[in-house]
Computed example of a mutant assay.
Amino acid sequence: MNLKPSLFDKRGDDKGRILFDEKRASHKLAVELVSLMPDGLTRRPVVFVCIGTDRSTGDSLGPLVGTLLEEKTVSPFYVYGTLEDPIHAVNLEAKLKEIREKHFNPIIIGIDACLGRLKSVGIIQVGEGPVKPGAGVNKDLPPVGELHITGIVNVSGFMEFFVLQNTRLNLVLKMAKTIANGIYEASLTYHPKNSWSNLKVNWDREQTT
């Protein structure tokens, strides 16, 4: 859970901010996500790290997204963090180490819930830079990702842990579905234009003509 609302409530800048139930919300998320990912010469694996725990309703956004993505085919993406196998404060560093051992130089996209202004509840933010789990509750946890997807699930400013425990699951689940559907749509369209394999195919064709 990222409790730093200032990172996601910048006035006058709506780029990458999507209301979970607005028209074509998942499509807009997919477009925004793909636009931020490298489309040139790269074979870096894309890894989504879904942070949170099912022990707190408000903090279950990440693992809900991970579980929903498990039910879909999102190749060429990799997904870590589900309701069954969550990534949270206790195991975050170990999980990040495991991911970096499995995937060479991955593009990591952190997914997490956050708290913000009342008018921003229900907003999904897609942008550059990491999520910072525990930043608002004085937990020294590593930042996660080159890119982030965060969902503002409730209001910040007072008794955050109580607020998280009393966040409506209905809202969190709907936001998770929008995010998961957006990532699925992105998986159908994200193909780096000039991968090494494409270059090899083009080179072979040139040599036979």
Rank of each mutant, 00 (worst) to 15 (best):
E128A: 12
P38T: 05
N166L: 07
G81W: 04
P63M: 05
G62R: 01
S187A: 14
D39H: 13
T150L: 09
V126R: 09
G110K: 05
L69N: 03
M37K: 06
L19A: 10
V74G: 04
E146P: 08
A113T: 07
K10N: 10
V131F: 02
P106G: 06
A186S: 12
F161T: 13
V155K: 02
R168I: 00
K97A: 14
I183G: 04
L173W: 11
G157K: 05
G182D: 09
L96P: 06
I179V: 15
G129W: 10
V46G: 03
P192W: 09
F104Y: 11
F158S: 06
A30Y: 05
V49E: 02
I183E: 04
L68S: 03
L83M: 12
S75I: 10
G110L: 07
M37Y: 02
F104C: 00
V153D: 00
A94G: 00
K200Y: 14
K15I: 07
T42P: 06
E32C: 09
I51Y: 14
G151W: 01
F8Q: 01
N138T: 08
G62W: 03
N198H: 10
L68R: 08
L7M: 12
P192S: 09
F8P: 01
L41Q: 12
I183V: 15
T209W: 00
F77K: 10
S187Y: 07
G182R: 04
F161S: 11
T42N: 03
D21H: 06
D204A: 14
H27V: 12
G116L: 04
A186P: 03
V65D: 02
Y190E: 10
R17H: 13
F161A: 11
D85A: 11
P130L: 07
D14V: 15
I18A: 01
K28C: 06
D21G: 00
I149C: 05
V163L: 10
V47E: 00
E185L: 15
L118E: 13
G182H: 09
E101F: 08
H88V: 02
E128W: 03
W196D: 15
Y80R: 13
G127I: 07
V172K: 02
A94R: 14
F77C: 09
L33H: 08
S195Q: 12
D85F: 12
